[in-house]
């Protein structure tokens, strides 16, 4: 479903010179798979996921979303992606209904169908009571539910989530975890980055660990356990980083 081929991203900064944020990265995430992207701060996780979501262009290499080359047809690729990050915000002066219908229009979903899907989300996520309240007045948890509805509205085949639980309380985080599980059960491919090892250990089928833009370990947790002889993902992660420092 998602195939990343030799992705390279170099930022050019006047003061710092060339910064290699993603260095020849290749990986794959199949339908119905949850892929965790782990790395220290500045490892290149956000840049990688932003490239996959077509927010950034790679310096070289490419990726395919459902067989569509993100460089050749970014708009078509975007139609198949649901992107959510800790930084993605919501229009605070709109209501959840207005926001979802707005994104529905952008995804060429008829208004009637958007409303139908919204009602379904409202039922599933317990959103009915605040559908017509301005987003500004909602709690963090309620906003998170609106974000989930916005992300899933167009039935994306691929979910890309960049630290989606960052800054959320335990209940709001659980909503995200449920979303990930549900996406897997619906045969969607899920790629998500996190700092929380226990979260990755709990939900991921496969993991990639990147450091300074380079892939340093990949595979299932069981595979990593047998490679390192360590049980906890925390220790596996630290050991993997130490090996390359």
């Amino acid at each position: 479903m998602v195939k990343v081929e030799s992705l390279l991203k170099i930022f050019r900064d006047k003061k710092r010179g060339e910064i290699i944020a993603v260095d020849n990265l290749s990986f794959e995430c199949k339908s119905g798979m949850i892929l965790g992207v782990l790395g220290l701060n500045g490892a290149g996780k956000t840049t990688t996921l932003r490239i996959l979501a077509t927010l950034l262009k790679p310096t070289s290499g490419t990726a395919f979303i459902d067989g569509i080359n993100i460089l050749e047809k970014p708009d078509r690729a975007k139609e198949r992606i649901g992107f959510l990050s800790g930084d993605t915000g919501l229009y605070r002066r709109l209501t959840p209904r207005e926001l979802v219908c707005y994104f529905g229009e952008l995804y060429d979903i008829p208004k009637k169908e958007s409303n139908k899907r919204l009602e379904k989300f409202a039922e599933q996520l317990d959103m009915k009571e605040f559908l017509d309240t301005k987003i500004d007045k909602l709690s963090t948890g309620q906003k998170q539910k609106v974000s989930i509805a916005r992300t899933m509205l167009h039935n994306p085949k691929v979910l890309i989530m960049d630290e989606p639980t960052a800054g959320l309380d335990i209940i709001a985080s659980e909503n995200i975890v449920q979303l990930i599980y549900e996406a897997k059960s619906q045969n969607r491919a899920v790629i998500f980055s996190t700092h929380m090892m226990y979260e990755a250990q709990k939900v991921c089928d496969e993991i990639i660990i990147i450091h300074r833009g380079k892939l340093i370990r990949s595979g299932s947790i069981d595979k990593m356990r047998s490679e390192t002889g360590m049980e906890d993902l925390d220790n596996i992660f630290i050991e993997s980083i130490r090996e390359v420092i």
Binding site: T54, L55, K78, I81, S85, D87, T88, G89, L106, R150
Partner: peptide, 17 residues
């Protein structure tokens, strides 16, 4: 304002060019 509120990233991720 949209950058600050994170909504620019949201709209950029939509199919709008």
């Amino acid at each position: 304002g949209e950058k600050e509120r994170g909504t620019l990233e949201t709209i950029l991720a939509s199919p709008a060019s």
